[in-house]
């Protein structure tokens, strides 16, 4: 009996030792030499694997960072949108480099074609994806550039940062947005753009991407940009350009002076999170003043709904 016990113990141990030696040799032979810094850098990355940096995951991004640091002694051009400058600072510290402060970005939805502003003219019956509806027709409100309201951006967001607002049928972005750019990619109509978050979340942008002429654009949507060019004239910083009947505010040049907001005849230019101001009494005709009032109200509305949303979310 003891013999059997002894025999099995010895033979099993022998097999174990032999196997471990083989494993060790193989491990030596196929060893992958990796910079230990990669692990350290990966530690400080947010591990969201969102792909916002342009790499498939945080590990790949860490590898790219370390490679670049070793080769070019710089990590310029790399940015982790989720971690922002804080994380990039830490990464730079690990790699012994300095990093420029990058201004935080946020996703901005450039369409205000809510049901109230752009009435529904067609009803769509099919799978709830913008990508398909975009191939099929110009949209329930008739605007061939505007938001389709089926929420492809919401589906791709990994940060719970974008939601459809049932009242307006437009997506709202909240504070959780890390500007990974997934929604920008997902939107078949290129409505969403990454812009500077701005101090105190103050932003000014043209909330329209319609390239049609004024008449047809307004026919579908009350708050469309009609390409009148008033904002271009009034801007003192050359931040606004007009192309294909559409104004665009360059967020790098914009100084948030709000002059363009007050001259926009349709209220297509939005200001967010600015302190309210008294509407100036203008000398122009009544119609214009009325329009302007409408616009201020509209702007306030969006502002307040966004605030509400944020409160609700937080």
């Amino acid at each position: 009996m003891n013999d059997i016990l002894l025999f099995s113990v010895i033979s099993l141990s022998a097999i174990g030792v032999a196997a471990s030696v083989i494993l060790f040799l193989i491990a030596q032979k196929f060893k992958v030499i990796e910079d230990p810094k990669i692990d350290v850098v990966e530690e400080v990355l947010p591990a969201a694997n969102c792909g916002g940096c342009g790499y498939p995951g945080c590990r790949n991004f860490a590898e790219a960072l370390v490679n670049s640091a070793n080769k070019n002694k710089s990590i310029e051009g790399f940015n982790c949108p989720v971690g922002g400058s804080e994380v990039m600072g830490k990464v730079a510290e690990i790699l012994g480099l300095e990093v420029e402060e990058q201004e935080p970005l946020i996703a901005v939805v450039r369409c205000n074609g809510s049901r109230a502003n752009a009435s529904q003219k067609i009803s769509y019956d099919g799978p709830a994806t913008c990508a398909f509806a975009h191939n099929l027709f110009s949209g329930e409100n008739g605007c061939p550039y505007g938001c389709l309201g089926l929420g492809d951006c919401v589906v791709v967001c990994q940060f719970d940062a974008i939601y459809m607002n049932p009242e307006t049928a437009l997506p709202d972005v909240n504070d959780k947005c890390v500007a990974c750019g997934a929604c920008v990619e997902a939107c078949p109509r290129d409505i969403i753009e990454l812009r500077y978050k701005g101090k105190k979340d103050r932003r000014i942008f043209v909330s329209c991407v319609n390239k049609e002429k004024g008449g047809p654009a307004r026919k579908n949507c009350k708050v469309a940009c009609i390409g009148c060019g008033k904002c271009v004239e009034v801007c003192t910083f050359d931040a606004i350009t007009l192309e294909n009947n559409l104004a665009y505010i360059d967020y790098e040049k914009c100084k948030l002076c709000r002059k363009c907001v007050s001259v926009c005849p349709t209220g297509a230019i939005h200001e967010l999170n600015f302190p309210s101001r008294k509407p100036k009494v203008e000398k122009t005709g009544e119609g214009d003043a009325a329009l302007k009032k409408e616009k201020v109200i509209a702007a306030k509305k969006t502002e307040s709904t966004k605030d509400n949303q944020q409160e609700l979310k937080s």
Binding site: G126, P127, T129, A131, F132, N135
Partner: peptide, 13 residues
Amino acid sequence: RPLLDYIRLGKSK
């Protein structure tokens, strides 16, 4: 099921 709708989407992508 809207099979063709999805297939068409897949085709365009």
